[in-house]
C-alpha cells in the first residue's frame, strides 16, 4: 500500500466507513442566510466607507473627470511608470492614452516581473465588490495578469456599480470554475512589530478605488 492508500484506509477505519459508504447531505444548519443589501447608492457608500477605514483612498468619478483625476494621482503618487489590465473597459476609457499624455511610461502587463516591480502605478478593474467588507474580487487571465495588482507601488482599481454583490456566495458561483482569483481589501499591512499597524508591506503600499458611476 502506498501512502495514499494507507492514509485513506486509516481514515475509513477511524470513521468506520467503507469505500462506497454514503455521504450524508451537508446539514442545513451548516448554511447561513445571505446578507440583505441596502439600496444601490447605500451599497456603494458602504463599499467606499469600508475601504477608506482601511487606509484606501476612494472616490466616485464620471467619465469626464477621468483625465483630471489621473493627472492628480500622477502628481500625488509621483508616477513615472504605470501598467494596466488590457480589458475592454480600461481601453474604452482611454486610460493608457491619458497616462501617456501625462508623460508616464506604460509598461506592458506581460513584461518581466522586475520591470513590473518598477512601476509606480498598476491599474485594474474588478470582477466583483463586496460592500460589507470593502473587498474587491480580481480574476486572472491573459488580459488581467496577476502582477498588475501586486507589484506596483500603488494599485488603482476602477470599477462600475454593477459588480457589487451583497455577499460572497453569488460571486463564488460565478468564478469557481476558474484557476485563480484574489480578494483585495485595502492596502497591504502588518502589526508584527510591537503591534503597531504599518501600511505597505509586500503588496502595494496604497490602494485607490474609483467607482465610475457619473460623478464625484
Amino acid at each position: 500500500m502506498n501512502a495514499r492508500e494507507q492514509i485513506l484506509a486509516d481514515v475509513r477505519l477511524a470513521l468506520k466507513r467503507t469505500t462506497d459508504a454514503p455521504v450524508l447531505p451537508i446539514p442545513g444548519s451548516a448554511r447561513i442566510a445571505p446578507r440583505v443589501p441596502g439600496d444601490a447608492n447605500a451599497e456603494i457608500e458602504m463599499l467606499l466607507g469600508e475601504i477608506t477605514k482601511l487606509g484606501g483612498a476612494t472616490r466616485r468619478i464620471s467619465r469626464a473627470e477621468m483625465r483630471a483625476a489621473l493627472a492628480q494621482i500622477a502628481r500625488d503618487d509621483a508616477v513615472k511608470k504605470a501598467t494596466l489590465w488590457e480589458t475592454q473597459e480600461l481601453k474604452a476609457w482611454d486610460i493608457a492614452d491619458a497616462l501617456r499624455d501625462l508623460g508616464i511610461e506604460i509598461i506592458s502587463p506581460h513584461a518581466d516581473k522586475r520591470a513590473l516591480a518598477e512601476c509606480d502605478l498598476g491599474i485594474t478593474g474588478a470582477d466583483a465588490a463586496f460592500p460589507e467588507t470593502g473587498t474587491l474580487l480580481l480574476r486572472s487571465s491573459p488580459e488581467k495578469p496577476r502582477a498588475v495588482s501586486l507589484l506596483p507601488r500603488v494599485h488603482l482599481a476602477i470599477i462600475t456599480p454593477e459588480i457589487l454583490r451583497a455577499d460572497l456566495a453569488p460571486a463564488f458561483a460565478e468564478v469557481k470554475g476558474e484557476g485563480y482569483w484574489v480578494f483585495v481589501t485595502g492596502p497591504s499591512r502588518t502589526a508584527d512589530i510591537e503591534l503597531t499597524v504599518t501600511i505597505g508591506v509586500h503588496g502595494p503600499k496604497a490602494l485607490r478605488v474609483w467607482v465610475m458611476d457619473g460623478g464625484s
Partner: peptide, 24 residues
C-alpha cells in the same frame, strides 16, 4: 483571529496557471 472583517488578501488557487500571459 485579528478582529478584521476580512484579511487584506485572500487568494484562491486551483492548479498552475492556465495561460502564460496571466502570470503565476
Amino acid at each position: 483571529a485579528t478582529g478584521q472583517k476580512i484579511s487584506t488578501y485572500t487568494s484562491f488557487i486551483t492548479g498552475p496557471r492556465r495561460s502564460t500571459e496571466e502570470g503565476g
